[in-house]
Design a protein around this nucleic acid. Structure first.
Lengths: 340, 340
DNA sequence: CAAATTTATTTGCGCGCGTAAAAAATTGTT
DNA sequence: AACAATTTTTTACGCGCGCAAATAAATTTG
């Protein structure tokens, strides 16, 4: 045998029949140990690997799992995608990662491309308000889809995310204890449903406390949150230092805020000598290394990723859509650091 | 026609023959405008798309281009991958992104998987010293590979990156002008070839200046550079504030350093009232938002990504390996901010 | 050791499309 | 209108493997 190109060739080289080799590649433990040894021995010598295109053409169920996030250059989603990918690999699946990079048209293109790949399932965090809802729903009808982080009603067979209400109530409660009801700092027109929910919860919480909600909303679009936070904080601080703590909708805005405060000479921190207390949400991977380190409410990355993967795999194994839509919200954990 | 599943079905629905439809999908402009109109009209009504597995099985040359980076959760590589992906999409290719997440075994697995996909080519930033050199070289022999950012000798048909010497000489030169020859702060055993080159250049430069090189190397492995920088700086600063500026090998280490300085009450900045000047390299996406904003040498992200893509596409079109290995190094640009 | 059971082999069809060659139809040219 | 040049159709084979049914061999059981 000069050159091993097909499974036929390879089977001959092992002294085993082709269907048996096929079975082996589908599930190595499904053939007798002796046969398996023969195959794996030949595998060493010839480094043959089956043609994935021929395989996937004939299998109705691919081993591919799509991971779709709104923006991979956002460390939160990068970290999320990393954890999910690792868990999928552990389960023997082939993850394929895609990022819409903030563009809803790109999001649809990704789904189109994904559908052509006949994936076993998809784990997706949609862009949010700006997503093409109809396209997403149509996709989820054709491909088992579990949604994480950003919920869109009517899309996907299940949702796994974090409890925005709890984010806000934990951070607000802490700030109230150590200082006063905070000013809420966010983007005026956020695409992300979590951002919207957080603002709503803030208002509700202030109402409950009998305090007038005070919101500073920064205009701006896209995913340059640090820049938005920076501009907004510059604007806010030029009107004087707030007489109460500031709660940022998310850590990336808070980082921009910190940069602006630094530039303005406003000392952020929890000590009596500091000018302003600042808290935030998400526990962005870098929030421990800001100056000062951010007090923030932390996502349970691993729990969200873990349950998302488990639910998708169950759904796939089961072979039929989940009986009913189920939304799971994990509780954040307060990460007390020095900014508030 | 109840359901359009195959190209055969679709061709019938257009009133065109199957080979013509096939030709259309390969190159839409290769069929007569009238025929093209017929096909595109039917495309609207039936939203058929050819089976990618069947296509790729029969084509020797896939349109897939692999993008492989050492760690996607590092904003530098996330940004790099984003730009490269966009450029590939513009060129009509299908990018597939992979991250080794710092693990050399994973890097090899990615390449194995990639080879099975018969990609037209691959753009790769290898892990560096810890990479399985032999596996990489073997891969590059089978698949057109252009290497970017981290150079490994003997691997790939070309290299595009940034000029480490120029990084160091620009930052050092600036620090010498405004203060004094800097202390160099880096990781003791970096995997990345750029880190090694930067330290070498620093030593050479100090020699040229007739100054004793002073290096503070932090032990630590992996990709948690902020943490390493933080620990190292805590250690360094506990011995007293250096009497000269500090130059960090890269921005992520510098961010950790800044956090440590903040904790220690050491004021970093360029003003006379500050205690320490700190400069760095890379122009990490967040380095403008640190406190103080980092003075750093900036990669030309777009130039590196652009040339990498162009060279790979040329190589693919040409159909044969590049006549000779060519390494291109772009000049960094000094980003003067407030940390030094 | 024979029977029952598990596992492997043989055979052969089908997946959806690429592609080549020859024949037919369409278009452009004089 | 007649011819040449281009484009499309027809026909038919091949890609590498999944998968199913029948048969044969190996293993386990009594």
């Amino acid at each position: 045998m000069s050159q091993i190109n097909t499974m036929e060739d390879f089977a001959k080289a092992c002294g085993v029949s082709r269907p048996t080799v096929s079975k082996y590649f589908h599930d190595a433990s499904s053939v007798r140990p002796k046969t398996r040894a023969k195959i794996e021995e030949a595998l060493e010598r010839y480094d043959y690997s089956p043609n994935i295109y021929a395989i996937n053409q004939n299998r109705k169920l691919t081993k591919t799992i799509g991971i779709v996030v709104p923006h991979l250059a956002d460390p939160f989603f990068a970290e999320m995608a990393r954890v999910i990918e690792a868990k999928l690999l552990d389960a023997g699946m082939s993850p394929a990662m895609y990022s819409a990079y903030g563009d809803p048209r790109k999001e649809v293109e990704i789904l189109d491309g994904l559908r052509a790949m006949k994936p076993a399932g998809v784990l997706m965090a949609p862009l949010g308000e700006i997503s093409d809802r109809r396209a997403l729903e149509k996709f989820a009808k054709a491909v088992p889809t579990i949604v994480f982080d950003s919920r869109i009603e009517g899309f996907g067979e299940a949702f796994i995310g974090s409890d925005n209400g709890s984010f806000i109530s934990q951070t607000v409660d802490y700030l109230v204890r150590v200082a006063a009801p905070p000013l809420f700092f966010d983007m005026a027109t956020p695409a992300n449903p979590n951002a919207i929910a957080r603002r709503d919860h803030y208002v509700r919480l202030m109402d409950k406390l009998g305090v007038e909600p005070q919101i500073f909303s920064v205009s701006g679009r896209g995913w340059k949150f640090e820049e938005v936070g920076f501009r907004g904080a510059l604007d806010l601080l030029s009107q004087g230092v707030p007489d109460r703590p500031v709660l940022c909708s998310n850590d990336r805005l808070a980082m921009g805020f910190l940069a602006a405060a630094y530039e303005k000479g406003v000392r952020v921190g929890r000590l009596p000598t500091d000018d302003l207390q600042l808290a935030s949400n998400d526990d962005h991977p870098l929030s421990r290394y800001t100056c000062p380190p951010l007090t923030t409410a932390a996502h349970d990355y691993d729990a969200v990723a873990g349950l998302s993967v488990r639910m998708l795999l169950e759904r796939i194994e089961q072979g039929s859509p989940l009986r009913q839509y189920k939304a799971t919200f994990f509780q954040p954990r307060l990460a007390l650091r020095d900014s508030a």
